[in-house]
Amino acid sequence: MAVHLLTGAGSGIGAALARRLLDRGDEIIVLARDVGRAREIAATLPGAGTLVGDLANPGRLSWALSKQHLPDRIDALVHVAGIVDLGPVADLPATLWEQQLAVNLVAPAELTRLMLPVLRVSRGQVVFVNSGAGLHAHAGWSAYAASKHGLKALADSLRAEEAEHGIRVTSVYPGRTATPMQARVHQQEGTEYEPERFIDPESVATTILAALDLPRDADITDVTVRPGA
């Protein structure tokens, strides 16, 4: 039975992936920002284990996890959690830059660092759910895109560093996906949200599963998922 540690499993892509993994008999552990949120997620994902750690405060992750029982084995660490706040560079305050960089980039780096010892033992895999914004930045998306461009750099460096330990690293770049984050984006853009126009989270989950299940003679390093015609 494979063991997966997921962030962002409370909704959207993360929730879809968590359900699929549980349904096929894998073990999952979800990281939640606080005890209350951990209970909420566990109630929607029967059988899932939980850990508590606030991605908005990556400097405290090591301390938080040191107070909890960590799994002896992790086969995959899947980073799905993220936040977005749009705005032109001229108007975006430093606090919104700091929050997005913390959750979208620094926390994945720190959580990966903390989990590397067990991932090395299992010759596991790290999956970063990035974004189309991690490849192309548009007006109003500077802070979010910067965090996601940084996430690509993190993945590329990690892949080169950990190849000797047999760790596979995959970046997934979904286009606009019908998630609560996308609803927030439309609210910020002042446009009507029509989820049927966008990628179903299940489709992105299917892509992630393909990367996780790929035989060890091959490696999916980067994959872009776009809305269908």
Rank of each mutant, 00 (worst) to 15 (best):
G53W: 00
V223E: 11
T44R: 15
G12M: 11
V89M: 11
I74M: 13
V30P: 06
K152V: 12
P108S: 05
R123C: 07
H4P: 01
G49H: 13
R20T: 09
A94I: 11
F198K: 00
L21M: 14
P117K: 02
V84Y: 04
H79P: 07
A94H: 06
G134P: 02
Y173F: 13
G132I: 12
G150P: 01
V127M: 02
D26A: 10
V35F: 05
Q187L: 14
L17M: 04
P201T: 13
H138L: 14
V106N: 01
I208N: 05
D85Y: 12
P71M: 08
T7Y: 02
E202I: 08
N130C: 13
L116D: 02
E189W: 12
T50Q: 06
F128T: 02
N130H: 09
V3H: 15
G12I: 13
L77K: 02
I29P: 00
W97S: 07
W63T: 09
V127G: 01
A143T: 05
L22W: 08
W97T: 08
G8C: 14
V204Y: 09
S122Q: 14
L6N: 08
E40Q: 15
G25W: 04
T206F: 01
L151P: 03
T7E: 06
A42R: 14
L31C: 11
R226Q: 12
E40T: 15
R159I: 01
S11Q: 15
I41G: 10
A153I: 08
G190H: 01
S131N: 03
V121F: 08
D75V: 09
P108T: 06
A205V: 10
Q68T: 00
A38P: 00
I167Q: 11
L209M: 12
D213N: 14
V172I: 15
A107K: 07
I29G: 00
T207V: 15
R20N: 06
P93C: 04
V204E: 07
I41T: 15
R168A: 10
A163Q: 09
F128D: 01
H136M: 10
P58M: 02
A163E: 10
V78C: 10
E164M: 13
G10E: 00
L70C: 03
S142C: 08
P58C: 02
R226G: 04
G124Q: 12
H136L: 12
R120M: 11
S122W: 06
R176Y: 13
E196N: 09
A94W: 08
S131A: 13
L209H: 01
E98T: 11
P180V: 11
G12N: 09
Y144D: 02
L111S: 06
V129L: 14
T177L: 07
A133M: 12
R168G: 09
A16P: 07
V204D: 07
L214M: 15
A218M: 14
R113C: 03
L61R: 01
G134Q: 02
T207C: 14
V78D: 07
R33Q: 04
A43G: 10
L105K: 05
V35Y: 03
R60V: 03
A76N: 12
A137H: 00
A9W: 13
S131I: 06
A178F: 14
E110P: 00
Q68D: 00
I167G: 10
